[in-house]
Simulated assay, not measured.
Amino acid sequence: MQNGFVEIILGCSRELSMNQLQSIAKAVLPSQVQKVLLAPHRDFVFDRAMKRFLSNPDACKQPRNPVLIDLIYGWGNKGWSALDEYLAACIEHALTSNGPILECGSGLSTLLLGAIAQKQGRSHWALEHTPEWATRVQHYLNRYQLDAVVLCSTPLKDYGDFCWYEAPLASMPDSFSLVICDGPPGATKGGRYGLVPIMSDRLKSGCVILLDDAEREQERTIAARWQAELGASFETLGPNKPFIEMTLH
């Protein structure tokens, strides 16, 4: 039965929708086998959606956009990928900001925002502490020739009260106009707080910070600390999976 499903995947991935294939897989296969056998379909859907995004990023700045839905499905990092409403907010701000972008953590958003930065002649810096994950992201950056992205595979460093990325400050831009903060993991000492004490002198007036996972009390507490330390304002957005949008004055 599993061999037969492989033939279905390879032969029909262009005709069947993702929901149809997932329904078939769930009906007949164990979860781990599903993951392996759906890979060809995910890759096809992702490549098709990525090409559509590259041709017109501006069309993908609203939640529930079918291209974003396909990108999330094709990327396949279930449970960790940002939801489409957060990705849409990241895209919208990337399209309207006017300087380098900083991303804490890397993934699908790195590709999408890197593509926008490249079209606009800007740079996108992404910090990633997991070498294996950085290798995967870099593979896709190379695949789509997204040379505007500087992906820094760097460990987390203990700064005393918190741990944060060991950022290559000497080679980074003097100021950033947009920060996408989806890392480090919440279990890290201090969570994501380290962004401000390490990078505050490079966050210029008008800089926007998009902090994901605002349903967690830790993120809300961090946002309140940042607000006090930066003299910023913020609001919580995203009805399905809240995130914080903070603006420096």
Rank of each mutant, 00 (worst) to 15 (best):
G79I: 14
W80M: 15
L83W: 15
L83Q: 15
D84F: 08
D84R: 08
E85G: 06
Y86V: 13
Y86S: 11
L87S: 12
L87F: 09
A88N: 11
A88D: 10
A88I: 09
A88V: 10
A89E: 15
A89M: 15
A89I: 08
A89K: 13
C90V: 14
I91T: 03
I91Q: 02
E92L: 07
H93P: 05
A94R: 10
L95G: 01
L95Q: 08
N98V: 06
I101H: 00
I101Q: 04
L102R: 01
E103T: 09
E103C: 04
E103G: 01
C104V: 04
G105V: 06
G105K: 03
S106R: 01
L108M: 10
L108H: 05
L108N: 05
T110C: 03
T110P: 00
L111P: 04
L111N: 08
L112G: 00
L112W: 00
L112A: 04
L113M: 13
L113Q: 05
L113G: 03
L113K: 09
G114M: 13
G114N: 10
K119P: 04
Q120S: 08
Q120I: 03
G121V: 01
R122H: 15
R122Q: 14
H124L: 15
W125N: 14
A126G: 04
L127G: 05
L127Y: 09
E128D: 08
T130Q: 12
P131T: 11
E132K: 13
W133Y: 06
A134V: 12
A134P: 06
R136A: 07
R136Y: 07
R136Q: 15
V137G: 00
Q138G: 08
H139K: 14
H139Y: 13
H139R: 12
Y140Q: 11
Y140S: 08
Y140C: 05
N142V: 08
R143A: 12
Y144R: 10
Q145G: 06
Q145M: 12
D147W: 13
A148H: 00
A148E: 02
V149N: 11
V149G: 07
V149A: 10
V149Y: 11
V150A: 11
L151W: 00
L151N: 00
C152R: 06
T154K: 04
T154Q: 05
K157C: 01
D158L: 12
Y159N: 08
G160S: 06
D161E: 08
D161I: 07
F162W: 06
F162P: 00
F162G: 00
F162S: 00
W164S: 03
Y165E: 03
E166V: 07
A170K: 11
A170F: 01
A170V: 03
A170P: 05
S171C: 09
M172R: 07
P173N: 12
D174S: 14
S175M: 07
S175D: 09
F176K: 01
V179N: 04
I180N: 02
I180E: 06
C181F: 09
D182M: 03
D182I: 06
D182A: 01
G183Q: 04
G183H: 06
P184Y: 06
P184C: 09
P185V: 07
P185F: 04
A187M: 12
A187S: 14
K189N: 05
K189C: 03
G190P: 12
G190I: 13
Y193C: 09
L195N: 01
P197W: 13
P197A: 13
M199Q: 03
S200L: 10
R202E: 11
K204F: 05
K204T: 13
K204M: 12
S205H: 13
S205F: 10
G206K: 11
G206I: 07
